[in-house]
Simulated assay, not measured.
Amino acid sequence: MTRFVIRLLINSLALWLTTLIVAGVSVRSYADDTLATVVTYLLVGLIFGVVNAIIGNTIRILAFPLYILTLGLIALVVNGLLLLLVAWISDLIGFGLEVDGFWWGVLGAIVLGLLSWLIGVLVRPILGRRQR
């Protein structure tokens, strides 16, 4: 459970940083105060984690030959489409992630993946000390 919460926080922080870096990716909060914005980022991070875990892994398994054929470059397209899917799901709720187009989704997915990885690398030594 702790690992799930940590991944959720890492994804939400990476998503927030992505919206600051990439102009075509933004998050629309359900209210104007700070707490509502934080909850919105956490909800979008949760949606992103669930979509990536279920649909993303299924696509990666089924399209494994395509990944080999394209030397992994298809992952950029798949991650961009998954980010667009998260935007569509959060739009159904009425607030959340907004992506301006496919290429903004691809760029946002690249930045989001890099930031999530970097934050995970930075957090890992801190968590390793607490578990001992």
Rank of each mutant, 00 (worst) to 15 (best):
T2S: 12
T2A: 12
F4L: 14
V5W: 05
N11Q: 06
S12D: 03
L13E: 01
L13V: 15
A14Q: 05
W16A: 14
T18D: 04
L20C: 10
I21L: 15
A23M: 10
A23K: 13
G24A: 11
G24E: 11
G24N: 05
V27Q: 07
S29D: 06
A31H: 08
D32T: 14
D32W: 13
D33M: 03
A36N: 13
V39H: 00
T40C: 04
T40K: 00
T40L: 00
V44S: 00
V44G: 00
I47P: 05
F48N: 04
V50Q: 09
V50G: 04
N52G: 09
I55Q: 06
N57M: 11
I59S: 01
I59W: 01
I59G: 02
R60D: 03
I61R: 12
L62T: 09
A63I: 08
L71Q: 01
A75C: 01
L76R: 05
L76M: 10
V77G: 09
N79M: 08
G80Q: 03
L81F: 11
L81A: 10
L83A: 01
A87D: 04
A87P: 03
W88M: 09
I89M: 10
S90F: 05
S90E: 05
I93P: 07
I93V: 15
G94H: 10
G94V: 08
F95M: 06
F95S: 10
G96C: 10
G96P: 02
G96A: 08
L97R: 01
E98M: 11
F102Q: 07
F102M: 12
W103S: 11
W103P: 02
W103E: 07
G105N: 06
G108Q: 12
I110F: 14
V111K: 09
V111G: 02
L112Q: 04
I119K: 08
G120F: 12
G120V: 06
G120Q: 02
V121T: 14
L122E: 13
L122P: 02
V123R: 00
V123P: 00
R124M: 12
R124V: 08
P125Q: 15
P125G: 14
L127Q: 13
R130F: 15
R130T: 10
Q131S: 12
R132I: 15
R132D: 13
